[in-house]
Design a binder for these strands. Structure first.
Lengths: 262, 262
DNA sequence: ATATCTCCTTACGTAACTAGAGGTGCAAGG
DNA sequence: CCTTGCACCTCTAGTTACGTAAGGAGATAT
């Protein structure tokens, strides 16, 4: 005759910090079935249940879903089989972590941009964010066609450089949106294109562009999908026209696919 | 007459990587309403919609919920008002990140324990995990009653020390589970308690225990809730008895609340 | 006798989709 | 002409891990 101390669901909930509703739920699922007081129908929890619940909570903490936990708590001894499973959990968790870290990076950059500019076009901000979001894909994609070093030089910049680039980018986009529609030979427009080219060359730094220029045209389209533009169709068309005109005027040939993407 | 190129939902989905279902869903929500071909009823997406979708995806990336996004995409210009909102996002994201990091830590430790031991009692492993999970609370709680330095010395150990401690812990628990029921004056039991005390003193290191011993008894209970034991009631009771006997025999007084918790 | 307390069950709400069933319109192949 | 297939449509239900609320029973306190 063990005196088997039991607890009501309320006591058990208070003891463990797990809500009554959750205990009901686990009971319904069969994950943690409590005995019943035959007269009242009230659930009775034992010390044994307490340990079982601790197991459940721990496994949940490791990232397992309840149905997986239902399987796992059957076994009283863990062996190397669990190791594999744990390694999968680890990978899943690390993926989540990385994705959150990228988001944090984007949020931070958005904040510092807002601090500098105090008001900006939503499309512009969005395109900056989307750029961060897709950076990894962009790199992987570019590495396919160029080299790892090239990509590294392109992307691995310091915090300040990044912000500087963002600011320039924003300024340029603002200008474009302001000047759109003006004749392509307007001096203001010419200055804009000048600026554009300067910022672009700052961006790529002192590296060799031949890698980039050897990209076939159809793949440049794929790249465009990865790097979103904050411009409307008209703005984009106008900018292309202005670019072409500038190139022609300066005798820099090739009035075809001018690429103004950063 | 703008030629307004439009896309079917399939094309749009392929272009953006967002599933057709999701596009339907966004349409139903009113988040991204597509025009309809009057004859077929098919959805028609424009370039405008593309940019809107990019905004949606970007905001989702920043951690906003769809209903919040529905509000946010109304405004075409962002200002300092958004900054606060972004800072909240940042905090939320960082909280998530921390929690994931703790989980990763737990998973890693579980893995390395499994590698060392190759098979172990599930309760023991769970209690190790739960210990990691509640470490923060334990620290906060202890800091209330002792000092920050004391707590720091207790918890801030190197990776190897941690694993070493875990291994000792596991060994002790295994021993307890093996010897449970033996008479308290059995030499094996005595050796176990010896071991227990040695490991405990290794754990607290060369620091002053007076801080810990001044904890009132009722609060020691609270601590027990935070630090789960992998032992069954019998095992626990037996261990307490053995402890008391050991203390008495060695003339170390106080046969009351022996505390074998790590 | 009534109010309060703890417990019970049933069932709907949440977030952001995914999956499936069942149906329409249109083009090409037999 | 009929069928097949494709791309699209709508509508319903399922997913995860609960939270919240409604309505009721039995025990205790005033």
């Amino acid at each position: 005759m063990k005196k088997e101390q039991t607890f009501s669901i309320g006591e058990f909930s208070a003891k463990t910090g797990i809500s009554i509703r959750t205990l009901h739920y686990y009971d319904d699922l069969g994950l943690l079935k409590a005995e019943r007081d035959p007269s009242s129908g009230h659930r009775l929890y034992t010390h044994e249940d307490l340990r079982k619940l601790q197991k459940i909570v721990s496994l949940k903490f490791l990232g397992y879903r309840l149905d997986q936990i239902a399987d796992l708590i059957q076994t009283t001894h863990f062996d190397l089989g669990l190791k594999e499973s744990l390694q999968m959990q680890q990978k899943a968790l690390e993926a989540k972590k990385e994705q959150i870290e990228t988001s944090i990076k984007a949020v931070k950059r958005a904040i510092s941009l807002l601090e500098e500019e105090r008001e900006l076009d939503s499309h512009v901000l969005m395109s900056v964010i989307r750029n961060i979001q897709t950076e990894k894909e962009q790199r992987l994609w570019l590495e396919q066609y160029t080299s790892k070093e090239f990509v590294g030089q392109l992307y691995d910049k310091s915090e300040e450089e990044m912000i500087e680039l963002d600011k320039n980018y924003i300024r340029l986009m603002r200008e474009v949106k302001k000047l759109v529609g003006k004749p392509v030979d307007d001096p203001e427009v010419e200055k804009l294109i000048d600026d554009f080219l300067k910022v672009s060359s700052d961006f790529v730094g002192e590296q060799d562009l031949s890698d980039l220029e050897s990209l076939p045209k159809d793949q440049a389209e794929t790249l465009q999908k990865l790097i979103p533009s904050p411009l409307t169709d008209e703005e984009e068309a106008w900018l292309n026209k202005a670019m072409d005109h500038y190139m022609m005027a300066k005798g820099m040939l090739k009035p075809s696919q001018s690429d103004h993407q950063l």
